[in-house]
Computed example of a mutant assay.
Amino acid sequence: MNHDMPAYGLWFLVFLNSAIFVMFAFSFFKPKTARDWRTFGSFAAFIVALFAEMYGFPLTIYLLSGWLQTQYPDLDLLSHNAGHLWSTMFGGTGNPHFGVMHILSYLVIGAGFYLLSSAWHVLYFAQRANRLAVTGPYARVRHPQYIAFVLIMFGFLLQWPTLLTLFMFPVLLVMYKRLAVSEESDMVSHFGAEYEAYAKRTPRFFPAMSDSMSE
């Protein structure tokens, strides 16, 4: 085991990676209202918690060290690769960065950012014109931006699961659901029957497989 190159304690990388992903998401979401900031803030907290364990202090590895050492006696707990727990538990060999779970995580994260960008483009012009956003991703679901945040977080869980982010994920799902319902109430107050008709034909989170299917 060679620890000449430390895998943790790299707080500059924690700051750098957190800043990149948070600012990238911010550039698309551009929070304005208190609700927007709560949504974005919860996402940012997830990202910071993730990279703090990925490069700062491996809390999950520390808490599970006894079990991991018993189940996987050859595992170097202080190595960066040990943090890829899905690869370890599913018997992955070789560099986990080239494993199926890691590649899948990039695809899911990429899809999330693409959806976030597409949704923001539609919403931006709709808000400027004071009209409903009903085209692009909004033609399929009522809250594509929340779905995008969930996809990004889920992608990171596929790549680097931690106890904290695994706990935060379902909490954030509930939070986004409540925010979505609250947002819909505001839309009804502002757009009235127009939004009610839109909500009736457009699922909240899960796109219908056909026009005849409802949420």
Rank of each mutant, 00 (worst) to 15 (best):
N2V: 13
P6H: 08
Y8E: 02
Y8I: 01
G9V: 12
L10C: 10
W11C: 07
F12K: 01
N17C: 09
N17K: 02
N17V: 07
S18D: 11
A19I: 08
F26T: 02
P31G: 01
K32D: 01
T33Y: 01
T33A: 08
A34Q: 13
A34Y: 10
R35T: 09
F40W: 06
G41P: 06
S42Y: 12
S42F: 12
F43R: 00
F43G: 06
F43E: 11
A45M: 10
L50T: 12
L50G: 01
M54W: 13
F57A: 10
P58H: 12
Y62N: 13
L63P: 13
S65M: 03
G66I: 10
W67R: 00
W67P: 02
Y72W: 09
L75H: 04
H80G: 09
H80W: 14
N81V: 14
A82Y: 02
A82R: 00
A82G: 01
L85T: 09
T88K: 02
T88E: 06
M89G: 11
F90E: 01
G92V: 12
T93C: 04
P96Q: 03
H97F: 13
G99W: 05
I103C: 01
I103H: 01
L104V: 15
L104F: 12
V108N: 14
V108G: 13
G110D: 10
A111Q: 09
G112N: 12
Y114A: 14
Y114H: 10
L115A: 15
L116Y: 07
H121G: 08
F125Q: 07
A126K: 02
R128Y: 10
R128D: 13
A129R: 08
N130E: 13
R131C: 12
A133P: 11
V134H: 02
V134L: 03
T135W: 06
T135F: 10
G136N: 02
G136E: 02
G136K: 00
P137F: 03
P137L: 01
Y138K: 02
Y138A: 05
Y138M: 08
V141A: 07
V141K: 03
P144K: 00
Q145I: 11
Y146W: 07
Y146R: 03
I147S: 14
I147D: 11
I147H: 00
L151F: 14
I152Q: 06
I152F: 12
M153C: 11
M153W: 06
G155Q: 13
F156N: 09
L158P: 12
L158V: 13
Q159F: 15
Q159E: 15
W160L: 05
P161T: 08
P161W: 00
P161S: 01
P161G: 07
L164R: 00
L164I: 14
L164F: 05
P170L: 02
V171P: 04
L172D: 10
V174K: 06
V174M: 11
M175S: 05
M175A: 07
Y176Q: 03
A180H: 04
M187A: 01
S189Y: 08
G192S: 03
G192F: 03
E194M: 03
Y195N: 03
E196G: 04
E196Y: 05
E196K: 07
Y198I: 11
A199W: 00
K200N: 15
T202H: 03
R204H: 11
F205M: 09
F206M: 12
P207M: 08
A208H: 11
M209R: 15
S210A: 11
S210K: 07
M213V: 15
S214M: 07
